[in-house]
Write a protein that binds this DNA or RNA. Sequence first.
DNA 1: TCCATTGTTCGATGTGCATCGAAGCATCGC
DNA 2: GCGATGCTTCGATGCACATCGAACAATGGA
Lengths: 201, 201
Amino acid sequence: MNNTLSEPNIAVVANLIGDNTRAKMLIALLGGKALTATELALEADITSQTASTHLAKLVDGQLLQVRKQGRHKYFQLMNLSVAQLLESLLNISVDLAVDIYDALQNHNFIIDNGCETLLTDLGQKFFISIGFDFSEIKKSKRPICKSCLDWSERRNHLAGILGQWMLDDMLNKGWLEREFDSRIINITKASLAKIKNRFNL
Amino acid sequence: MNNTLSEPNIAVVANLIGDNTRAKMLIALLGGKALTATELALEADITSQTASTHLAKLVDGQLLQVRKQGRHKYFQLMNLSVAQLLESLLNISVDLAVDIYDALQNHNFIIDNGCETLLTDLGQKFFISIGFDFSEIKKSKRPICKSCLDWSERRNHLAGILGQWMLDDMLNKGWLEREFDSRIINITKASLAKIKNRFNL
DNA sequence: TCCATTGTTCGATGTGCATCGAAGCATCGC
DNA sequence: GCGATGCTTCGATGCACATCGAACAATGGA
């Protein structure tokens, strides 16, 4: 591995994280639990060969450490600094979901009491006004409005029926489009404006 | 600009920083002073056209903000979060210089009192033992051993005559090689072992 | 008005690299 | 021992993108 003396090699480290599938792996490992190569391959939707090369690079780049156990290899983040770096990155690349969550909170549509998010009366009126059908609550046992810790374990985004409905609604309206066989949602520039307008962002 | 809802786009951000020349620009801007496009092009050793495209990407990616002033364009880091992200990256991609500094400190060869670094008697003996000529101190007014704030403004590396001598020495021994017309120093894997051995790292 | 400077856009080129199929090791259970 | 599972290496393929030359637009100074 090459190193630089007078200049930091931040580009090398950033480049490691800059690949989409490697980023998926790292985020999967941000939970703290050590995962095997195949588990990470599944998480990133790639073959085991590709995962192997990626993991080798991440280990070589000191971002991951590996522990061999039988025929398995358990990977985990190298140290706390790596986790903090990933959280810094998550802090920058703000999710639209977080934006929406914050907006709803600012409008007093939802209240976050620290451990769960509650829908206010004002919020209920708002969601009814934009077409949400609260009658389906009774059919399901999923909480209607619950915050969950996302990858950074800090920023809230909407979960539960309400969040799912918002997501489906936007997908139906064509504002968002789901990548084939993936949890990734893409949003176009034009649609982003509509969404921001809808939520007064 | 594309955004992702259900998955964080840390790969996008990291990929922006992952390019070597863009990293150079960002680090140049870490000083806090706003720089023009041509200044950044010079800093990164590229033509103005290439710099223009890079800067456009960094602005689009919300890492830089730009202020137009006459026919100049002044670029600077978007916000504190970006600076903190860069510092996290610098924190990970540890310099060899920092390693050496820490090693010298652990061996009680130098003492860091917070604002400057002092050479101990033990350290003086060590440096004499490896060939450092302290008689040249009198010829110069540069401090013989002074820590300076590097890019992260947190981690010390060696400055002053002593640091310069160590650098020149390693360059002469062929352990390091300087890139043409640049402050970048490269170190090979084999040489790294020698250096680590020399400083008992 | 003319020129110099600063910055952008376009097209062409080259290269690095992610991806996967195929084949090869190592390890476990039987 | 033999198959199954987990992981790696190699080679080929394809794509994304950094880079620069050339041409162009905008601004400032003389």
